[in-house]
């Protein structure tokens, strides 16, 4: 698999680390929203929004990737 880092261009998978589903962190005390953030997953068979890090340049990325085909339709900086 190859991902396109917005800084470094298209690079081999071995330079990247998957960091979990791209969810928004809740606030406040433990409750269903936190449970959903920490544990529950849509786990889609299809388009999946994920955090990844390009380890070598340290950029955290938001990746739109199909879990059935591994086709990557978009990569941006995590908070672009």
């Amino acid at each position: 698999m190859r991902l396109t880092c917005p800084h470094c261009g298209t690079r081999d998978l071995r330079e990247f680390t998957y960091g979990g589903a791209a969810l928004e962190r809740p606030t406040g005390d433990w409750g269903p929203a936190w449970d959903a953030y920490v544990h529950l997953r849509e786990n889609p068979a299809g388009a999946s929004f994920e955090w990844w890090q390009h380890d070598v340049c340290a950029t955290w990325l938001k990746v739109d990737r199909d879990t059935r085909t591994h086709v990557i339709s978009q990569v941006t900086e995590a908070r672009a």
């Binding site: 680390t17 960091g19 962190r25 955090w51 890090q53 340290a58 950029t59 955290w60 900086e77 995590a78 908070r79």
Partner: peptide, 13 residues
Amino acid sequence: MKQMEFAAQVLRP
């Protein structure tokens, strides 16, 4: 380091 970068870039931009 990874978690701190995550915090800086993703959780608390």
